[in-house]
């Protein structure tokens, strides 16, 4: 038997679910009714949502996407390591390490201050221009390096905020046991900092996953470039839509995962 309060709550919950469903249905029907009424709809449908071209380009795009994933997979760990190194440079307190500190500050300023695509161009075209022998003139290497350099600047700032967020009392407690500065950092501060900023770093991974496509501007035939090829071939934009779908299939679950991590963490802390 439900108490009057439970009964009331249950009815209120049912009513709000019903209202939410009805208003969502209304909004979607309105869009489906209105968009086809726009004057250019027929043309847009033909050049962006062509089922036949979608089916033809999709498998090839998927294969090209493997390259994006590969670039992502080798960049991500290097970004994490280099980002952490820069963060530690910025946290160096000994006077002898001041140059490192200065370097860390300059580094994050420069690489966060320039658009990613510019870094990709400058390094991706610039370094191979030195006339290096194969394989050192590969756009994969230098394009990846451009991504690594840029992203580690952001990741370094995330790590640094994590390091700063570990309360001073933790450092005191560790130091009071006679641990060296390095061990205080490695055993006490860093493990807590890295965990705390994991959701923020997840977001960087999602952004990186998309920005891998920027390498298409300097040569590698990854998914975006492949889509461009098909666009020219069929004189139709549907391959771009197909590429977008492929990206979403990866990034949406990743985003949800990151959100859940964040929510879980906030729940733990409260």
């Amino acid at each position: 038997m439900l108490t009057p309060r439970q009964d009331y709550n249950r009815r209120a919950r049912r009513r709000s679910i019903f209202i939410a469903a009805a208003s969502t249905a209304a909004a979607i029907s309105l869009l489906l009714l209105l968009i086809p009424l726009s004057p250019g709809w027929a043309a847009v449908q033909k050049s962006f949502f062509n089922a036949e071209i979608f089916a033809k380009s999709f498998p090839v795009l998927l294969r090209a996407f493997v390259l994006d994933v590969a670039i992502f997979l080798w960049c991500a760990p290097l970004i994490a390591l280099w980002g952490l190194a820069i963060a530690l440079c910025r946290d160096a307190r000994a006077p002898a390490l001041y140059p490192l500190r200065l370097f860390g500050a300059l580094y994050t300023d420069v690489f966060r201050g320039v658009p990613v695509i510019l870094i990709v161009y400058l390094i991706g075209f610039g370094v191979p221009g030195l006339g290096l022998p194969r394989p050192w003139n590969s756009p994969y290497i230098w394009g990846s390096l451009a991504l690594i350099l840029t992203y580690s600047a952001y990741v370094a700032e995330i790590f640094r905020s994590g390091i700063d967020s570990v309360h001073a009392s933790q450092r005191s407690a560790a130091a009071s046991l006679g641990l060296s500065d390095w061990h205080v950092m490695r055993d006490v501060v860093l493990p807590q900092a890295v965990r705390r900023v994991a959701p923020a770093n997840m977001n960087m991974l999602i952004a990186l996953q998309k920005d891998v496509a920027l390498l298409s501007f300097i040569g590698p035939v990854e998914i975006l470039r492949q889509a461009g090829v098909y666009k020219s071939l069929y004189a139709n934009f549907t391959p771009y839509v197909a590429a977008a779908v492929i990206f979403l299939v990866v990034t949406i679950p990743a985003t949800r995962f990151a959100d859940r991590m964040l929510a879980r963490q906030q729940k733990q802390r409260s």
């Binding site: 009392s169 933790q170 005191s172 407690a173 560790a174 009071s176 046991l177 006679g178 641990l179 060296s180 061990h183 055993d187 006490v188 493990p191 807590q192 965990r195």
Partner: peptide
């Protein structure tokens, strides 16, 4: 040795790891 009002245990380690850390490292 010093013990603080707010305990200041290391939250990412078990009790025994908290205790062993300093003797291990130092």
């Amino acid at each position: 040795g010093i013990v603080f009002q707010s305990f200041n245990l290391f939250p990412h380690m078990t009790a025994v790891e908290n205790v062993m850390l300093a003797p291990r490292r130092v």
